[in-house]
Amino acid sequence: MPTLASQGETIRLQPATRRSRRFAGPWTYLFLAPAVLLFVVFIAYPIVWVACQSFFSEDRDHTASFVGLETYWAVLGDPVFWIVVRNMVLWGLITIPVQMLIGGTVAYFIERHTNAWRGFFRTMFFLPVVTSVSVISLVWVQIYAPYYGIGQEYLRHFGIIMASSPIGDPSTAIYALILVNIWQWTGFSMLMYVAGIANLPTEVLDAARVDGARGLRLAWSIIIPMLMPVTKSLLLLGIIGTLQTFPVVQLMTGGGPNHASEVFGTYVFRTSFVLGDTGKGATISVIVLVLALILSLVQIVYLGADLAPSGHKEESR
């Protein structure tokens, strides 16, 4: 019954063009338009602008002159820049693992060992995330305050007496800020792990239990490895979050004392808006941007691009 095709060639491609009119015609590109427009105007254009600007220097009479990489060398030669780098490294190295550890542990016990109180715990530990960061900052300033802050009061019970506020001391300021950040964002790690744990396939956990894994053993050899996607997302989000750090520092120390707690946010803010040095501000912006892209790329190359909550795999399809 089958006969060979002869007219096959002549009508090729015609179907696709005609049928496209109604369901998937060119007009459907309008679906992409709003997001792309936002991106071009408010993300891409500023980036290009700032990149160009970083090669210019503005004089007193508002004429810009091309200076090439000069501002870059100036920024790299600025000791404050290196304090910022050190602070950012400290920030990332401390906050990310600590948040994962506390958040993960809390999530594990909430999900596996509570029932009636589960919703309550989930909500309460997340509250700092939804508390306005500017409020948090002022509350912690009060906590850290000497004489009347409860932080100092509690430390006294352990025999630690500080003469001044930890955020007023250059050697402790950054750690004091990191503590606030950990306090605020651990709830986020917790909730991500909660989602991950709640969605673990029960068959695998049952199989592990049949194999005799229980308690810590189960957590260590089954649950933690299976939560890797969440951990990867948290790492990526943590690094981006570290580079975003601004409000806590700006409100609690302003980057001081004497630049001891300076981060990229405050550094850019001070240079661009307080000192009004657009060229240098632009250069720092570009450096932060490049750093962020490199860190993200390194991570995506080594760990894959798990980004969405609970490790949706985007690159897998």
Binding site: P46, F246, S285
Partner: peptide, 19 residues
């Protein structure tokens, strides 16, 4: 579009303010 996720606001505030 995804690259936006990796752009820290710190590097955008200056050009955004001017824009």
């Amino acid at each position: 579009l995804l690259t936006t996720l990796m752009v820290p606001l710190a590097s955008l505030v200056l050009p955004l303010a001017i824009l």
